[in-house]
Nucleic acid binder design. Structure first.
Lengths: 202, 202
DNA sequence: TTTATATTGACAGTTGACTCTCATTTGGCG
DNA sequence: CGCCAAATGAGAGTCAACTGTCAATATAAA
């Protein structure tokens, strides 16, 4: 009773091994995807590279697609946003969040994020997944925005605003990836997100 | 020499039959996709329904995916936009265009557009295609915007603005599809696109 | 009508994602 | 140590997209 599956638990060898295996599979998969593309990489190849049997691959991931993990950043962004004062202009709140807690996450996972994002931008077959996630993100952002304004999350106006924010996001991340991550992502946000509060201005 | 393959040529029986077959395959494919989903529909089923052999299916379409044709609307939008005065605010220009020539196209193909769009929103496997197109659209819009403002189409600011416009678009189309096309798409645009010129306002 | 050519169907075969089963190994624990 | 349950691998099997070949048929041209 004392130990749930909290991070505090010592974690037996079995569990540790499983995590490592999972990580190894994912890592090798990414490597191969990046090298040869998603479609051109077979599950057998991934299994080989990760030194597990194909059966084992499917025990860890229900499908080849599932190897591409979901984005943890957008949910984190949504959560962090809720902590911002409700009367702060929305775009400002987003920027503040990205320079704060979420920005730290991005910094930490920079390398993997770069690789992963590059794949999902490059490989046509991988985009489906990415778009699905993006949809989820939009809903999250819309929910937050709805809370802040006291409006309905299903409100079209709210949805459009959330979509616009995410779109600018995506554009900036793409730019960041194309520049091999040399620029500072947080700074890109800070510089270009205000476009939306200015009303484009074109 | 007198007759190329122009539309004026009488078009032999052979050619006419081919077109009909092509049309029939596509039509049946759409019907089945709408009824059972993209993944759940096999090429054999499509071939059966279109009364051709599976071989013939692949003679007409190199892959199952290719049955879903590309979007002609966004390029049309870009072209129509170039005809608008350069000093008109961008969002206004877009709205005017959508209420004009492009709106007419949308009206004309309403049924097919509704069906096709529903598929590409509903079916995960189909999204990849859709996103690729969307990317093309963004580039088109960015190009137009660049021309109008005399800036570089690669300018991040320009790209962000184009992305935001397309994002709001997509959101509105999705809403339209979810409401089975009962609302007037042009009116939705007119009502919600100004969000971007107002600077969100949240 | 006869001949050349384009279109088609039947069919066999390949490939890769994914499932299932069963025997073997391996970490957890008394 | 020794038992149990979890984790793994081997291998056979399914399913659907896609390829290639060949013979039959339909159209166009002479």
């Amino acid at each position: 009773m004392t130990t749930h599956e909290t991070s505090a638990a010592p974690l037996g060898l079995r569990e540790r091994k499983k995590r490592k295996t999972r990580e190894r599979i994912r890592h090798e998969a990414y490597r191969l995807f990046a090298a040869h593309g998603y479609e051109a990489t077979t599950v057998d190849q991934i299994a080989d590279a990760a030194e597990v049997s194909p059966s084992t691959f499917f025990r860890y991931f229900p499908s080849k697609e599932d190897v591409v993990l979901q984005d943890e950043y957008d949910p984190a962004l949504a959560e962090a946003l809720r902590a911002r004062p409700a009367d702060e202009p929305f775009v400002d709140a987003v920027i503040a969040t990205l320079k704060g807690p979420v920005g730290a996450m991005l910094q930490r996972d920079r390398e993997e994020l770069l690789l992963r994002t590059r794949i999902s931008f490059t490989d046509p077959a991988m985009r489906a997944r990415h778009v699905a996630e993006q949809q989820r993100s939009e809903n999250e952002i819309a929910a937050v925005l709805a809370e802040r304004t006291g409006r309905d999350p299903a409100d079209l106006e709210i949805k459009c605003a959330a979509a616009a924010v995410i779109a600018v996001f995506t554009t900036l991340v793409r730019h960041w990836v194309e520049g091999d991550g040399r620029e500072d992502l947080a700074e890109l946000y800070e510089r270009h997100l205000p476009l939306l509060s200015r009303g484009l201005g074109f």
